[in-house]
Design a protein around this nucleic acid. Structure first.
Length: 544
RNA sequence: GCCCCUAUGGUCAAGAGGUCAAGACGUCGCCCUCUCACGGCGGAAUCAAGGGUUCGAUUCCCUUUAGGGGUACCA
């Protein structure tokens, strides 16, 4: 077959590949610099798994003084969603995963010399390389869908499967003559371009994945689609062309791609490109209702979408550090030894990523988040909280910003201690946690509380409270008052024979706390009373 | 069905041919303490099963089992 003629017939207007090769020369980067990318498809949200691989890619680029770029993979026309690219870019930026290069949403201009960074704008490029493969005799047009109908193909495959348990992937359209093809083209029949595979699945070759290590891989025998009949390439071909032209050195992607790796490698090879290094990452899973582990899915699991964590008000650093913890389990040891350093200083390593699919653990996320928030200043907490509330709880936002000084005082309670409290894991909890400071007491947590004793204690204590007391004096007064109502000040004494007392000093304080906050659990009541002011404190005592 | 990946406590996991099998979260108990929390101390809890190889296997090999993923003109 005259492949030059065929190429001309199929892609008469395609530029020679040299044009693109010249336009996109090799990157001039320092030794060891890695070029990585994030390439989501525009589905209208950013999957936590994307954030996960973006983190790996970004850190790797940062550590090697390389480049981390964004490419939008919008080749699936059926799944296009408005603003999806913007959303993905904004989510990435929100999580400090801002790309150095590439697509930046629909509003901002792209950065970089290797664009366009949106695949649907690169059709001319794909055509050139498609034409090139045809010329080389490594690709052929397939008219099956139109001429036989999808059903025929499926039938054929199922039949083969039943008979031999093996699908012969070599396509029948390989055998079309130039004349037949010419006729079909002239008749306006659409075609898909397929790879003429030369692989033998009986043979294997060695491949080293950055995460999985050395593997034996079967050669590809599938005549995979290079160009769909709508003229757009599917993932595999776009991946090979773009990552080659854009100079990607490490492809970080989910493990679900591993089975198709062999085909991808053959495409790179046919194209005459050296394939990049690959890091196939584990997939984040969850335990579903029936007790099975499964991949986080957008449809069933709200936490698959990173917006879930933004809405809930988990600080972004906490989410990132949680992911980092999943990636390199020694991160938390490092974090414990370096409490004030930025996570970007952590000596992250792709090799140390485990190959087990981790289960998402909210308890762990909360712990990391609580630790993180506990180390913030009141000022920082205030600004992050307001930023969150401004989007997700306007009413609370108004309350907070009405009197910023008061809000900050509240947020500062127990914050400057040597051992700050770790009560708050996400911003959405704060309103409920501090409601008594902003909205008064709506109800008292009285279960297990002896109301008579409660009243009695408060009645006595309200005359003793003096807002001018320093903390020491304040507590001294409590200790003086407690015995008169038969509350033990000495805990050991109390424990020896609790029945002889109404309670101990702890119980006594619980009543005060309850009167002031309505809760049995709150930060330092001395501070709370101080911020509330004598008038309000008195009012709350009177209420009992 | 076929192909690929994975297998250490409830979860995340370190680990090496010989270990009392790290650490963290969670959980339980005790201590500290004005409650809760924080903090401190301690406990319970793991090498999926069966075969090999070996003086010795949780570690290497095989099989089974379980789970995940793929098997698209989706990514």
């Amino acid at each position: 077959m005259d492949t030059k003629k065929l190429a001309n017939l199929l892609y008469p207007n395609a530029k020679p590949i040299e044009y693109w090769l010249e336009k996109y020369p090799k990157r001039n980067l320092p030794q060891g610099a890695e070029v990585t990318r994030i390439s989501p498809s525009p589905t209208g949200y950013l999957h936590i798994g994307h954030a996960y691989s973006a983190l790996i890619s970004k850190l790797t680029a940062m550590q090697t003084n390389g480049v981390f770029y964004f490419r939008l993979e919008d080749t699936d026309q059926k799944r296009l969603i408005d603003n999806a690219g913007d959303i993905a870019y904004n989510m990435l930026t929100h999580y400090n995963l801002k790309p150095d290069e590439g697509y930046r949403g629909d509003e901002l201009p792209q950065i970089g010399e290797y664009g366009d960074y949106v695949q649907s704008k690169r059709l001319a490029i794909y055509q050139s390389f498609a034409r090139y493969l045809v010329e080389k005799g490594r690709a052929f047009p397939c008219f099956c869908k139109k001429s036989e109908g999808m059903e025929d193909i499926e039938e054929r495959r199922n039949k083969q499967l039943e008979e031999s348990g093996f699908i012969e992937e070599k396509d029948v359209c390989r055998n079309l003559t130039l004349e037949e093809i010419t006729n079909k083209i002239n008749d306006g029949e659409p075609f898909a371009l397929k790879l003429k595979s030369e692989g033998n699945p009986e043979k294997t070759f060695e491949f080293t994945d950055l995460i999985k290590g050395k593997r034996e891989i079967r050669e590809n025998a599938k005549d995979v689609v290079l160009m769909k009949s709508n003229g757009i390439p599917p993932y595999a071909f776009a991946h090979a062309v773009d990552d080659s032209l854009m100079g990607t050195t490490i492809v970080v992607r989910g493990e679900e791609w591993f089975p198709s790796l062999s085909a991808h490698l053959e495409i790179f090879n046919a194209l005459g490109f050296k394939a990049p290094k690959y890091a196939h990452t584990p997939v984040i899973c969850k335990l579903d209702e029936s007790g099975n582990k499964r991949k986080l899915s957008k449809r069933k699991d709200p936490e698959a979408d990173v917006r879930f964590f933004i809405e809930a008000g988990y600080p972004k650093i906490a989410v990132i550090e949680y992911l980092l913890n999943l990636l390199n389990s020694d991160f938390e040891i490092w974090r414990a030894n370096n409490p004030t350093k930025k996570y970007t200083e952590f000596p992250f390593s792709i090799q140390k990523i485990g190959s087990n699919n981790p289960m998402f653990d909210f308890a762990k996320l909360s712990d990391i988040s609580k630790n993180y928030i506990s180390h913030l200043t009141a000022e920082e907490v205030y600004s992050m909280l307001v930023e969150w509330a401004n989007k997700f709880d306007i009413e609370f936002c108004k309350t907070l910003t009405e009197n910023p000084d008061y809000s900050k005082q509240v947020l500062n309670i127990d914050r400057e201690n040597a051992k700050p409290r770790k009560d708050i894991a996400k911003w959405s909890e704060v309103k409920n946690y501090f409601d008594y400071m902003f909205y008064g007491i709506k109800n008292y947590e009285l279960d297990g509380i002896d109301k008579e004793k409660f009243k009695e204690v408060i009645k006595a204590y309200k005359d003793v409270y003096n807002e001018n007391d320093d903390k020491e004096t304040w507590f001294k007064r409590i200790k003086e008052l407690a015995p008169s109502l038969n509350y033990a000040v000495d805990n050991k004494l109390y424990k020896a024979c609790p029945e002889q007392f109404n309670g101990n000093i702890a119980d006594f304080c619980t009543y005060i706390r309850l009167a002031l906050t309505g809760k049995k659990n709150s930060p330092d009541i001395y501070e709370i009373a101080k911020i509330l002011g004598a008038k309000e404190v008195k009012r709350r005592f009177e209420n009992i």
